[in-house]
């Protein structure tokens, strides 16, 4: 088990280092931060001065070395655009993204799983058909459309919810539901089919033969076995809860990293782009390691091999 954890963490470290190289190179591949930052009427000499002031005149490997050294010591450099430590700029917004992602993940997981289980236990029945249609819609309708529709209905027409912003519990509802929408549908479908498979198994039959109540049969015996594919899908979707927030945050004026990321990329704010990508992806990579460890917890066959 310890070896398993160690090897997963080792892989994670390599992944993160790889990401750092890619993001460093990619950010610089097209477009020049200096060119985009300098007032257009500046003279060539003035442009050079600004590039020098930002350290962009040095060779790329040197810049990467400086960057990597900084990262190790927790210094991600200063954002060109914001004039503040990139990590600070990022850290001011990332918690907002995480809060929204966490709420959305919970909504997607609880919603998707309960709907999926309901569908599986009533397979072929009316609830199942309704759920299947909703799940299909969920995967076919883009989340930003859902977001706009929700806003038109609940803010403009009914006036129940504020359109946007982050101030109080109410403002979480529409962004979280929109962000969760797609995943919820996918999870519902996965849960349904995974549960249907498991419900056919001998051990579920035996659980019934043992005279256990149906709820116990479903949630203890069937669900935990159905959980692995559900979790696999969910862990893939975790990335979406953070990356998908770019659009949802935009629509609901959510003060997360969505907007920041796009701004940083378009303005070639290298330190900020690097920070955002590196920290976010490290976070997601570690989250995935966490999910892998969770598999082992759920299924002893993984734990013991």
């Amino acid at each position: 088990m310890l070896a398993y954890v160690a090897s997963r963490l080792g892989q994670a470290a390599i992944t993160i280092l790889g990401i750092s190289v890619i993001v460093f190179a990619l950010a610089r591949l097209s477009g020049d931060a200096g060119a985009l930052l300098v007032p257009p009427e500046a003279t060539p000499q003035e442009r050079q001065d600004i590039r020098d002031a930002l350290g962009l005149d040095r060779p790329l490997p040197v810049q990467y070395g400086i960057f990597l050294k900084g990262v190790v010591t927790g210094d991600f450099g200063k954002s060109f655009r914001f004039g503040e430590p990139a990590l600070e700029v990022f850290a001011k917004r990332f918690p907002n993204t995480l809060q929204l992602a966490a709420v959305a993940a919970v909504v997607a997981l609880l919603g998707g799983v309960s709907v999926g289980v309901l569908g599986a236990t009533h397979a072929g029945g009316m609830p199942d058909r309704v759920i299947t249609i909703i799940a299909l819609l969920g995967q076919a309708v883009p989340s930003f459309l859902i977001a706009i529709f929700l806003m038109l209905i609940f803010s403009v027409n009914l006036g129940w919810l504020p359109t946007s912003g982050k101030h109080g519990t109410l403002t979480y509802i529409m962004p979280a539901v929109s962000l969760a929408w797609y995943s919820m549908a996918a999870l519902a479908r996965m849960t349904r089919s995974s549960m249907l498979d498991v419900m056919e198994t001998d051990y579920v039959r035996l659980a019934r033969l043992k005279g256990l109540p149906e709820s116990r049969v479903i949630w203890k015996h069937a669900f935990r076995n159905a959980l692995i594919p559900i979790l696999t899908l969910f862990s893939l979707q975790l990335i979406f809860f953070v990356s998908g927030s770019v659009i949802i945050e935009n629509i609901f004026a959510w003060p997360g990293i969505g907007q920041l990321t796009v701004q940083a990329i378009f303005s070639r704010d290298y330190p900020l782009v690097q920070t955002i990508v590196l920290v976010t992806s490290s976070f997601l990579v570690l989250l995935n390691v966490g999910v892998d460890l969770l598999y082992a917890f759920i299924d002893p066959r993984i734990r013991l091999t």
Binding site: T201, D202, Y203, R205, L206, A207, K220, H221, R224, N225, I298, D299, P300, R301
Partner: peptide
């Protein structure tokens, strides 16, 4: 079938 009758995760 004893191979499949017991729940593998408990």
């Amino acid at each position: 079938d004893p191979m499949t009758s017991l729940n593998p995760v408990y």
